[in-house]
Each structure stands twice: as structure tokens, then as C-alpha cells.
Amino acid sequence: MSDLFIPNPKEAESIHILREVAAQFERPVLLFSGGKDSITLVRLAQKAFYPARIPFPLLHIDTGHNFPETIQFRDDLVKELGLELIVRNVQDSIDQGKVREEKGRYASRNTLQTTTLLDAIEEFKFDACIGGARRDEEKARAKERVFSVRDDFGQWDEKNQRPELFDMLNGRIEQGQNVRVFPISNWTELDVWEYIKTENIKIPSIYFAHKREVFFRDGLIWTANEHVYREPHEEVVEKMVRFRTVGDMTCTAAVLSEAETLQTVVEEIRQSTLSERGARIDDKRSEAAMEKRKKVGYF
């Protein structure tokens, strides 16, 4: 038996939300990207349902351009915790002619994921998709509800959202609708990192400083490999870098870093004057980029 246990209010809230999802929906799924936020969600779900197993599967929308370290990590985690993993590939959506591969300097599969995701929701009749988005990430996200209702087309009607009062979550929906659920809405990037550190949660190696072949463009550091378009004059150099978010290689920029341990990573985040989204190439495209993507059904 331990000393008096003082709950962490944000953790307690997230667990409360996850239990509401399991109770209010028939087919929930956890959208798993292999990034730190979705890894944190998995830990919270473990805590919410212990000693039972997590009562919903994980869904990974694989762009085919993920960092191999993330995929390896995903498979190890699923095995270790005995979870059910569903993978759907953007490549299949391309092959079926549903979406067209982008071309040119900023080609990315990031926006194409939306189609693959909506198809998977339809295929498995998921009624609640749990995501790791946080309100501090981006201005449009700051307006997001914890239970965010999407229509049959996966669209977000930002001006017509249900008010959320006290702890009460209203997950009632009509046939064909589904709900996006954001249990760590109220966490900041620093909260997530401090949690990973206190809980000693394993994360993919690319979050720590490592040597990598990169090139510089628009003030950002891009991974140099076959999936990322590069002009002949864009010179490849080797640098010590790490990633602050992991997504598709084509939209995730690295930062210069020497931080090789959780301790030093947390220190670095605390002192950082650049936001996490500042290293997201997709958001740099326009100030309203995220709001636009969300409206059509992005994560």
C-alpha cells in the first residue's frame, strides 16, 4: 500500500474520457500514428481499463513514407501489450484511383491520408475515432471539442459544435455520423513530454538526437531520402538531429539537437522558442491550413 496518492488532474480527465468512449460507443478505434501523442494515449488507455485489456483496436493509416523506426516501434508495442492493430495504406487508395499522388517540391501524402481514413471508418463502421490532437498545437485545434461530431462525410462544422459542460460528454449520434475524440485536448506539448518521462514510456528512437542525412529548405531541415523530393542544388549533409513530431517523412522537419535522453529532450522543449507545429511543413503552407484540412475530415 502506498502513501496518499495525489491524482494528476490532466491524467484523471483523460482516463475519464477514455472510459466514456468505451461505454458510449459500439465500435471505437484509436488512431495510432506511432508518434508520442498516440503512444501517450495507449498508456492512458492501459490505465483506464487495467487489469482488462484495452477494449478497442488501433488503426494506423500508413502513408508508406513513414520512418522505418516508427513502424518497428508500432509492431513491438502491439505485440508487447497484446493489442489488435489494423493498418490501411494510402498506397491502396492511390492504386484504386481514389486519390492522386502529389507532385513537385512540396509533394506529400499527408493530405491523402484523409481519404484512406474515411474509407477505413466506413469499412469497419467505427463510430468513435480516438486521436491524440491537443488544443495547444494550433489555433484551429483550440476550438475543438473533446467529443467532436462529424457528419457522414467526415466533415467538421466548426460553427455548430455541441457545448461541453462540466465533465459531461454527450456522444449520441445519428446513423452514419461518427465522433472524433480527443482525450488529451487539455495537455500541452510539455505536459506530454513530462508524462513520458515520469512514466518512463518507450518512444521511437527518432525522437532522440541521432546522425541523419538531411538538407535545408525554407529554413527547415528535411530528411534526405527517396520519398522526399529534392532539387539537385539542395545539398545533402549529415547532422545531429531529432524530431519533435513524427508523421509522414514528407511533412515532418527535424530540429538540430544533441538531446539523447528523455531528461535532455524535456529540458530542450522547456527552453524551446519554436512551436511543435513550426516544424510541420504542411502547416507552413498557410495560416488557415489546419482549419481547412479539419473541415474535410483530417485527423
Partner: peptide, 16 residues
């Protein structure tokens, strides 16, 4: 009273 794999003697308000 349990919080994840810990057994608690006392739970205070706000705990899940």
C-alpha cells in the same frame, strides 16, 4: 481501490 497497477488505501476527489 486501484489506480492502474497500484493499490491505494485512500482515494481523494478528482481521481479516476
Amino acid at each position: 481501490i486501484q489506480f492502474f497497477d497500484q493499490e491505494l488505501e485512500v482515494a481523494v476527489p478528482g481521481a479516476s
